[in-house]
Computed example of a mutant assay.
Amino acid sequence: MLRNFDNRLNADVIHALRAMGHGDDLIISDLNFPSDSVARQTVLGKLLRMDNLSAAEVVEAVLSVMPLDSFVDHPAERMEVSGSPKEIPAVQAEVQKAIDKAEGKSWPMGSIERFAFYERAKKAYAVIVTGEPRFYGCFVLKKGVIPPKAK
């Protein structure tokens, strides 16, 4: 066991998060996303799993150790609802709350059209599939930096 560490993060996920660099994208996907086939095309080349957790729970756990990129307008983005791009389903509202809590401020997500999301996901560092059964529970998180401690 590790102290002060979210035990929902498994060894494979921790390894990927640690290996990612500033600006790398992490995909958090729902159960309906073609996670395995897309993950095979990512930098990591294999699917990461955080089964039995909702998308918001996974985002909360990931953001407990990974900062979001403060150099871009939307370091977190959501997949748009087809035919209704401004609609915010409950799953996306829950993830937004997890982001705001982790960052200590309101930081609205950007949005990506569904098929553009698939293409973006193929270029990501890694894909984590969640146990999220609701539609449109797919997100991009861009890794930020942790500044050095002042001496």
Rank of each mutant, 00 (worst) to 15 (best):
M1P: 13
R3A: 10
N4T: 11
F5A: 00
D6R: 05
N7C: 03
L9A: 02
L9R: 02
L9P: 02
N10F: 01
A11Y: 05
A16L: 00
A16E: 01
L17K: 02
A19S: 14
G21C: 06
H22M: 09
D25K: 11
I27P: 08
I28A: 04
N32C: 03
R40S: 14
Q41D: 11
G45H: 13
L48W: 03
L48H: 03
L48R: 02
D51Y: 12
N52V: 06
E57P: 03
V58P: 05
A61Q: 06
V62F: 01
L63D: 05
S70C: 11
H74R: 07
A76K: 03
E80L: 01
S82P: 04
S82G: 01
P85L: 09
K86C: 00
I88S: 03
A93C: 02
I99N: 04
I99R: 01
D100A: 06
D100I: 08
S106Y: 04
S106A: 12
W107G: 03
W107T: 02
M109T: 03
G110D: 12
I112H: 02
E113V: 13
A116R: 13
K122G: 06
A124Y: 06
A126R: 06
T130D: 10
G131A: 09
E132K: 08
E132S: 11
Y136P: 12
Y136M: 04
F139I: 11
K142T: 15
G144W: 06
G144P: 11
V145E: 15
K149H: 14
